[in-house]
Design a binder for these strands. Structure first.
Lengths: 337, 337
DNA sequence: CTGTTAGCGCGTTCAC
DNA sequence: GTGAACGCGCTAACAG
């Protein structure tokens, strides 16, 4: 591999001049610039990133921690983050924690070892006190997650409100026995949704007959399991708030296999507005999250923090959610042919 | 940030000894080892990766090029690759080419700039001659894709056979007017499937009435569009070979909205055996690909190539595919309750 | 078993 | 405008 030295020799100039051309500094005569560029291309010279990183103390790379990329919410988020980052010429390194505490900490070390300039946490399993020390090595930004004690930039959705409008919708449809079904209780996303859900319940306190909770449901398979739990309950709920469209789809699918009618016997509201929610029968009433907006905000924030190196202040940016009413809850809506 | 020098000073030893401890070399007395470890932890020392990379000429990182992470096939592949790579303590950097030639070349530069030790190409849009030069800088391995002229390690599925068994199944069900629906014609995956499909057609030449082709279908939305194209054909096919379960799901969904009966009026076979294929009604007959096996093989291969630095030989590893017959083609199968 | 020394390839003062 | 020289942090000979 040719180095900057080789280029300099071939061009009959010093390393410095070559370096200046590479980083297009001013004060290089057009003539020599041409010579350098010629020499570079004849040698097929490419600057070595390790040396640059060492010298500039920048990796131009950000780590994104997500539980799993197979979850469509996260893969959509990654896609958006990647596009936003590439506008700044930043690379992303995607890390799957699989909800494991150790994996999360392991990947946080990318920051200490300077393999990345910052970390975007889209999942937070560890207690904040275990994550905080890594802040010594660079910026950490929370994305979609939230931690009360974390004094760092945070971009999130208004999950409280999202769950509230979803729950309210179910109540307005006349449901009195409800099931709240979610992912890990660890996550503040879940906590917030539960708060919103319970707020709606409280507002209709007199009418609500039953409120049940189920945890750790993430995908279609989990949804199927949830259905069977429902079917075995003493008092069977008439409506389910599912943490994601995948879970909702699993419930619907299994319900129909068992000849339950949706939404008449069991109404379901999902989350995320995945394409999947248009495929099921009925289609899934769902809460739509503006992932793209969030992704852009996160990247802009991260870039600012990397530059200014001031990232110990808590600043929370919140995006609003919207309920899309479709077939899985709408009793008397005339369905499109 | 403390450096190895600081640790050495605090421990009253030389940089070398510290380095030896870090890389657990032999020939370091237990006593000094202890002192070093103590010094490291009191200072909170973490080795700087940029310096290591520069010195060792290794990034311990591999780039994976995929079209889009939102495609479940690729997100599943990434998940498997990531788990396999982490066994070697290798990081993955995920790059989305979005089927763009320039993006692909841009990411290949990660190899020239030494940001990664190797590249796994799960998508190949450029002509091989445009990719080949990058081989000067490190190993490139093809995964799921194939290029005749590429003399590099390749791990793939037997797409010819996969499509053949799927097509044969449709013919055996009595279908005589068929539609082959796929992604980009560029991809050898598509070419191979087409070959297998046509081979089955040829074997039943006398009976086949119609064979149509549609391209550039990747997701649920595309599937919907495909349905409308089908509906407008002069001679309407009775069976569709879809390049993926998403497309198949889109076709089924739209077909049913338009009161077509599946599989009676239109039979459909998908690809990938996604969870989604269990959600639709009917469920989707699909070709199952052992993604996990492929991923492990690719990583093992890549590790070997990085080590030996011999990666200019073509060696092709192929995994067999399997047809899973479900509701979208099975006319007379009694469906499970 | 341990320390001294010499780069890995680049960017950047500071003189000229 | 340009070049010489230093050092980013670390590892790997080579001595001892």
């Amino acid at each position: 591999m040719p180095t900057i030295e080789d280029v300099a020799k071939l061009a009959g100039l010093s390393r410095t001049t070559v370096s200046r051309v590479i980083n297009n500094h001013p004060y290089v005569s057009e003539d020599k610039k041409k010579r350098v560029i010629l020499a570079m291309s004849t040698l097929g010279f490419v600057p070595n990133s390790a040396a640059r990183r060492l010298r500039k103390q920048k990796a131009e790379t950000i780590a994104v921690l997500v539980p799993r990329v197979t979850n469509p919410f996260f893969s959509k988020l990654i896609e958006s983050l990647e596009m936003a980052a590439s506008e700044y010429k930043y690379k992303l390194i995607i890390c799957q924690t699989r909800y494991l505490l150790e994996k999360e900490l392991e990947y946080l070390q990318l920051l200490s070892t300077k393999q990345v300039d910052g970390i975007i946490l889209c999942s937070l399993q560890n207690k904040w006190e275990h994550v905080e020390p890594y802040l010594d090595h660079g910026p950490i930004v929370l994305c979609n997650e939230y931690a009360e004690e974390a004094h760092i930039p945070t971009v999130k959705f208004n999950q409280v409100e999202g769950a509230y409008i979803a729950a309210k919708h179910l109540l307005e449809q006349g449901h009195r026995r409800l099931l709240f079904c979610s992912g890990s209780e660890q996550s503040m996303v879940v906590q917030h949704r539960k708060m919103g859900f319970l707020r709606a319940m409280a507002e209709h306190k007199l009418q609500v007959e039953l409120v049940e909770f189920i945890e750790d449901a993430y995908d279609i398979e989990d949804g199927r399991r949830v259905f069977h739990k429902i079917a075995q309950m003493k008092k069977i709920p008439t409506a389910v708030f599912a943490g994601g469209d995948e879970v909702a789809a699993g419930i619907i699918s299994e319900a129909k296999r068992n000849h339950w009618s949706v939404p008449d016997q069991l109404a379901i509201v999902g989350f995320d507005n995945q394409l999947l929610s248009e495929i099921t029968e009925p289609t899934i009433t769902t809460v739509c999250q503006p992932i793209d907006k969030m992704a852009h905000k996160v990247i802009d924030l991260m870039m600012e923090k990397i530059q200014t190196k001031k990232y110990h202040k808590k600043e929370v940016y919140e995006f609003e959610l919207e309920l899309l009413i479709k077939g899985s809850t709408a009793k008397n809506v005339i369905m499109l042919a």
